[in-house]
Simulated scan of single mutants.
Amino acid sequence: MFKRVLSSAVALVAISLVAATPAQAVAFQTTASALNIRSEPYLSAAVVKVLNGPTAVDVDCQKLGDPVTVPGRAATSWWAHLPAHGGYATVGYINTTETKLPGVPDCPADPPPPAGDVTLADVQAMFGTRIANPSIVQTGLPSLNQAMRDANINTPRRKAAFLATLVHESRLEYNIREIGDTRVYGGRGYIQLTGDFNYGPAGRYFGIDLLGNPELARSLQWSAPIARWYWTVARNINPMADALDMGKVNAAIGYPAGAEDQRRCDSFKNALRYLSGSVPAGVICTRSKALSGDTSKLTKTQFEALDRIPGTVG
């Protein structure tokens, strides 16, 4: 009798183990000693786990994301989804000579983004009295909506993070100058562009002389494109919004951690609630210790390296 019960228990364990492995999963092995597993296939996405390695893993699908170059291998933009670990690992640190895993299907396409530009009524519903000058906001919205399209700010999470940031930076007024700031390269425009270390690169990107004519940064023609430049070129903020990591968004904007972080996160939640009907679980309002200071003068590469776990890759 005992043997029959034991045999049945072993069989049930075996069945559960089989069921835990996705039907289409393909076995591979990681090649790094400490590999970041990220919530999405982007280098700035949240790290959900670090795999000590080499480690045997099951991959059920793969997805295009940020390019990663591993010494001795060709760069790859493909990331392997590891269902047992709840995230993605770059294919660069998987035991294959290919840039895309053989025998592994692509992950299902993301749902199409919601259609429609943001209106004055929308931002008033999201942010209430923070919209202090509706006529100026209305004037700037066509250029701001175009900048959002250009930057792929096209999902509720991305729109909420972008608009919550700008409403705190500039009240969504394209032509605003930071109050009391008399510096030549003080805050201007939607994103409150600040410092010659930003005016110079932004001007070179657009082929305009922002260093020689900084007032262009708050013109109707350039205020929204500059905000888009900062969001996608100076930083890579969309993946942070995808991960609901408003703490990292705030750090990327470049001011020290404090009470303002929570205020901006509350605005992010209000915008999410309006755009999608609810606030999903997992919104992150706080920053890691590494990102608690003023990061405004860091390059994009320096910023992305700041929050990386020492000794990890991917």
Results as ranks from 00 to 15, higher is better:
169 E>D: 10
169 E>G: 05
171 R>I: 06
172 L>H: 04
174 Y>R: 04
175 N>M: 08
175 N>L: 08
175 N>V: 03
176 I>H: 06
177 R>C: 00
177 R>P: 02
178 E>A: 15
180 G>S: 09
181 D>I: 11
183 R>C: 05
183 R>M: 11
186 G>M: 08
186 G>Y: 05
187 G>P: 01
187 G>A: 08
189 G>W: 00
191 I>E: 02
193 L>E: 00
193 L>G: 02
193 L>K: 06
194 T>K: 02
196 D>V: 15
196 D>L: 07
197 F>K: 09
198 N>H: 11
198 N>Y: 01
201 P>A: 09
206 F>I: 04
207 G>E: 15
208 I>K: 13
209 D>R: 08
212 G>N: 11
214 P>G: 06
217 A>D: 10
217 A>V: 07
219 S>P: 07
220 L>A: 15
221 Q>C: 10
221 Q>R: 13
222 W>H: 10
223 S>T: 02
223 S>K: 05
224 A>Q: 09
225 P>A: 05
226 I>K: 04
227 A>T: 03
229 W>R: 03
230 Y>I: 12
230 Y>K: 13
232 T>A: 06
234 A>I: 02
235 R>G: 12
239 P>L: 01
239 P>D: 04
240 M>K: 14
242 D>S: 07
242 D>Q: 04
242 D>L: 12
242 D>P: 00
243 A>Y: 00
243 A>K: 02
244 L>D: 03
245 D>N: 15
245 D>G: 09
246 M>L: 13
247 G>M: 11
249 V>D: 07
251 A>S: 14
251 A>D: 08
251 A>W: 01
253 I>N: 00
253 I>C: 00
253 I>P: 04
254 G>P: 03
254 G>W: 05
256 P>H: 06
256 P>C: 06
257 A>T: 08
258 G>E: 11
259 A>F: 03
261 D>S: 13
261 D>I: 10
261 D>M: 13
262 Q>R: 14
262 Q>C: 09
263 R>L: 15
263 R>P: 01
264 R>A: 04
265 C>S: 13
265 C>G: 09
269 K>D: 07
271 A>L: 12
274 Y>T: 10
274 Y>F: 15
275 L>N: 09
275 L>T: 07
278 S>P: 05
278 S>Q: 10
279 V>H: 09
279 V>Q: 02
280 P>E: 05
282 G>V: 10
284 I>K: 15
286 T>P: 00
287 R>M: 12
288 S>W: 00
289 K>L: 15
289 K>V: 11
290 A>P: 02
290 A>Q: 14
291 L>I: 04
293 G>P: 02
297 K>W: 01
297 K>E: 01
299 T>V: 12
302 Q>F: 04
305 A>L: 14
306 L>K: 13
306 L>T: 07
